[in-house]
Design a binder for these strands. Structure first.
Lengths: 196, 196
DNA sequence: TGGGTCATGTAACCTGTTACATGATTAG
DNA sequence: CTAATCATGTAACAGGTTACATGACCCA
């Protein structure tokens, strides 16, 4: 999977592992966290598959770097992947797994759990709003302005997702607070489990 | 990760691999897809770690089964995991990676891409609305009614997520349709990349 | 006799994470 | 002198996917 992300970046132009790493952090982190070590490993795989070539570039005042370029075969692979249909939109979410089993802990502790989560998400949201995504910088110097449309879509997804997540967390928290304040919802739910 | 999900289920009562598999499909599929083979493998790991024990149960009219039970040490591990803080709410989403690089394909093809996605998500949504999640069935015969609150939260997350996803897909599709109809947005975005 | 459900797995592979490892240059 | 940035990796392990493999019973 990461392979195709790297291939997609190389398709915009030659890049070093270091630059790819930065691109992931700056622009793709809304939906993909790439480990530096994995990036360097996948670059070797791309080369082995004939999807990319590398070239050492000597620099003055900086360490040498290794620039990777996509090959014709790599471009074909990228397109094969883009066209292949595969509409998975549900992924593994550890945070939901932990929520599912929270009946094992006390209501008070779980209120804390959601409060902490809410704080984390809010911090993320305000960071999003204060420092706009760096994809914009890339938009300037790349071949085709149409690319920016799709980049913007993923950023938009990030914003919508985070907002929805925050709404959900707050809703959960409120529900627990109601239960704590002696509301009868627990019993009702137990009596009529079909309601959800 | 799956380990803890299985541990959480065993904590409700003894279960076989087959039953755990069904539970994942019925109730945890909103945020976790577990492979049958992985479930059986992880059960062996739980046993090896002393977190669960197994017992062969002979049945008449059905094949023998192997019931797994959580141990005290397994319950400790479950609680250690539940308490450990870890607030990752962003995960890898292949569908977003594919969207990011869609500049490589034509606008028309990408309209198709979002149309297909939208159909898939709508089908999922209507399935959700027509056949309510089976977690309800489990709610009846399990020890503590409070558990159902947390199960309901994850189902609620699923509903909110799918709805948000659908909104996003439709928004993307509309944006592309506007571009197709000669709207100037592409140029504007290219001139003022800071706008997003 | 054919499809569905019950029931359990192995092997190989691919993908991702964590920990470790090194070293140059530049700006303050 | 020290922190930040530039730059590239390896090794071991953990977690997840795909393909394969088997067989009983029940109902129509």
């Amino acid at each position: 999977m990461l392979k195709h992300g790297i291939l997609g970046l190389l398709n915009y132009g030659s890049m070093t592992g270091y630059e790819i790493n930065k691109a992931f952090r700056d622009s793709l982190s809304y939906f993909w966290n790439a480990q530096t070590s994995q990036i360097y490993r996948e670059l070797q795989t791309l080369k082995k598959n004939g999807w990319a070539t590398d070239e050492v570039v000597e620099q003055t005042g900086k360490p040498d770097k290794k620039a990777f370029s996509i090959t014709e075969s790599g471009r074909e692979e990228l397109n094969r992947w883009l066209v292949e249909d595969n509409a998975e939109f549900v992924t593994r979410l550890p945070v939901l797994m932990k929520t599912f089993f929270r009946g094992e802990r006390s209501v008070d502790e779980n209120i804390d759990y959601f409060t902490k989560l809410s704080d984390t998400v809010m911090a993320f949201l305000s960071k999003l709003q204060n420092e706009p995504p760096k994809v914009a910088d890339y938009a300037k110097n790349l071949r085709d302005p149409i690319d920016a449309i799709y980049w913007k879509m993923t950023v938009e997804f990030g914003a919508m997702y985070v907002q929805m997540f925050l709404d959900w967390v707050n809703k959960c928290k409120e529900e627990l607070e109601e239960i704590k304040n002696g509301n009868q919802e627990i019993q009702n739910t137990a009596d009529n489990p079909d309601r959800f």
